[in-house]
Structures are given as C-alpha cells and as structure tokens.
C-alpha cells in the first residue's frame, strides 16, 4: 500500500496509507484531509478537490482531459504547473511517498 503525503495549506503534513486504484480525492476524504471538499464526489464538475503534484509525477501521469484542464483554471486557489483535480488521479505505486500539496485559496 503506497503512502501519500498530504501537505496541508497550513504547512503540516498528513501521511496516509492509500489503496491502489482509489482516487487521491477518495483517499483524502477517508482521512478527512482538510481542504478537499469534493462537492461533486469525483465527477470533475466542482473543482473543490484541487491538489498540486510534483513536476516529475505530472509528466509520468500523462496528459489530462480537456474537461479537467478547463475546470482547473477556475479552482479557488490559483492554478500551478502541478495542479490536478484529485478526483481524476488514481493511486498507484508511483505515488508512494509523493507529496500532494493542498493549495491555499
């Protein structure tokens, strides 16, 4: 089981055991990670599950959909080069020990 290191907006880190195949958003909700609201519960419709990933992980995850790309420009916290909707990213071994930052609005 990979460990995801959520880096909270206040600077604290919350390391959680995650299950492969679940989304980062589901992983965050199960551990009540503050800042992941996920109003649409994973439908890529609300942009309230915004996270920022390291550059090398962005490259490894490959291109994002046109819909997600559009939505990210309207998340509350400004978009960064590592921005993703956490509901659209599935946990895999590649994310083991990776820092997933919750940007502050």
């Amino acid at each position: 089981m990979p460990t995801i290191r959520f880096l909270l907006a206040d600077g604290a880190e919350l390391a959680v055991e995650a299950q492969n195949g679940r989304t980062l958003m589901e992983t965050a909700l199960e551990s009540s990670v503050p800042g992941i609201i996920a109003e649409c519960n994973g439908s890529a419709a609300c942009a309230t599950c915004h996270v920022v990933l390291p550059e090398e992980i962005m490259v490894a995850l490959g291109p994002i959909s046109e819909h997600e790309n559009d939505m990210l420009d309207f998340a509350e916290a400004p978009r960064e080069s590592g921005s993703r909707l956490s509901c659209q990213v599935r946990v895999s071994d590649m994310l083991d020990n990776v820092s997933v930052r919750i940007p502050s609005a």
Binding site: I37, E39, C40, N41, G42, S43, A45, C46, T48, F74
Partner: peptide
C-alpha cells in the same frame, strides 16, 4: 464554508458555472 445550493455528488448542477 461550502453550501449545497447546487446539490452534490454526480448530479451536482451542470449549470453552476
């Protein structure tokens, strides 16, 4: 704080934006 005027879940209002 977030509210529920546009619903929630997969039927979250399509016309929100």
């Amino acid at each position: 704080k977030s509210h529920l005027a546009f619903g929630a879940g997969s039927h979250f209002c399509a016309g929100t934006w």
